[in-house]
């Protein structure tokens, strides 16, 4: 086996970057499934049956009380055993990302259901009444009036959740997933822990800008979704400025556009 030199932070960043795709995969998948699950829980929390409300509440409390690394291990050791002994299906060669997605979907179900509930309750009841009074059906009123406003209230929490997910997802290396963190750990092992600091600092330099970009994107989204008009206008201009400044290379200006 060739002995590798990982002493350059810049080279390490280049080596690590491709593995971000797996990180994005589980972040997005966990968000998707977590969102669906949370929707169910939020509906349970807002419904009139006491039993359903209590179940959803207890579930959320449990998820809030567990450290993610503990739940990750429980899922990782429980699921194969359960499917082998009860469902009689061998899932030993299922990709590890499945466990990560499942763990964080379980977590996000609890978190996001709280976010959804509080956002829904933040929209005043008059809005629904007003919508119904002008002849919208309850479904129309919910989709056109309540949902956009509730979404606006939920954005800061959503941003926190996504960054939380990105950060906690790094723990997936403990079950052997080779995402960006897992790759850094693997590189460290392959080089016999001679260059741990350049490798992990390179990784930190990947996570840092990533979290900042996500935070800023959600801030722009928040400004765009702001119900007050003037703010929306400036946000649109800011978005244009942002595009011109950072994403200029994506927008191809047509040649000779000035003459036309």
């Amino acid at each position: 086996m060739q002995y590798k030199n990982y002493s350059s932070i810049l080279d390490n960043i280049k080596e690590l970057l491709p593995y971000l795709s797996l990180t994005f995969q589980y972040v997005l998948l966990a968000l998707l499934f977590g969102f669906i699950f949370a929707l169910l829980l939020a509906v349970m929390k807002l419904c009139k049956y006491k039993v359903l409300r209590a179940i959803a509440q207890i579930y959320t409390t449990i998820m809030r009380c567990l450290p993610s690394v503990v739940l990750l291990f429980v899922v990782y050791f429980f699921l194969p055993k359960f499917s082998r002994e009860v469902l009689l299906i061998d899932i030993d060669d299922v990709p590890k990302i499945l466990f990560v997605v499942l763990t964080f979907a379980l977590f996000l179900g609890g978190f996001l259901s709280e976010v959804m509930r509080s956002a829904y309750q933040a929209v005043s009841k008059d809005q629904m009444d007003a919508a119904l009074s002008i002849g919208l059906t309850p479904l129309q009123a919910f989709i056109r009036i309540i949902l956009p406003q509730a979404f606006y209230y939920a954005i800061p929490n959503l941003a926190n959740t996504v960054i939380y997910l990105l950060k906690e997802g790094a723990l997936a290396y403990t079950i052997g997933l080779i995402d960006v963190m897992g790759r850094a750990y693997q590189m460290n092992t392959l080089s016999y822990s001679v260059y741990p600091i350049p490798i992990f600092v390179a990784l930190a330099l990947i996570y840092w800008p990533l979290a900042i970009v996500i935070e800023q994107l959600f801030k722009i989204l928040e400004r765009l979704m702001n119900p007050i008009k003037e703010d929306k206008k400036t946000a649109g201009q800011k978005l244009k400025g942002f595009k011109a400044k950072y994403l200029g290379f994506l927008v191809q200006t047509p040649k000779g556009g000035a003459e036309k």
């Binding site: 906690e168 963190m181 992990f200 840092w208």
Partner: peptide, 19 residues
């Protein structure tokens, strides 16, 4: 603050571990 808040705690712990 921005650095600590945007890096996973486990990564910081690993850095400290190797130090």
């Amino acid at each position: 603050v921005s650095f600590i808040r945007s890096t996973p705690p486990i990564l910081l712990i690993l850095i400290i571990y190797y130090v």
